[in-house]
């Protein structure tokens, strides 16, 4: 299992990470951050393979990936 750490406060909810996730594990959260964006969230941490595609695609360096 891999671990994603998402800096939700600086996420702008563009969703580009969700599109590139090979397992389709990322979706916008219902929460709203202080900037007014719905930040991205992982739907099933267990299934994350730690490929870091999401982190490489993210324009705001929001995601840290550990494995």
């Amino acid at each position: 299992m891999a671990k994603l750490t998402i800096a939700t406060e600086i996420c702008k909810g563009c969703g580009l990470c969700a599109d590139v996730c090979p397992k389709k594990l990322l979706a916008l959260s219902h929460d709203i951050n202080s900037k007014g964006y719905h930040p991205i969230a992982i739907t099933d941490q267990e299934k994350c393979i730690g490929c870091a595609f999401c982190a490489r695609m993210c324009p705001d360096a929001v995601i840290k990936v550990e494995k």
Partner: peptide, 13 residues
Amino acid sequence: KPLHYCPGCTHGI
């Protein structure tokens, strides 16, 4: 410093 670019702008990448 958080980037000021619009959501989804590739400048950040």
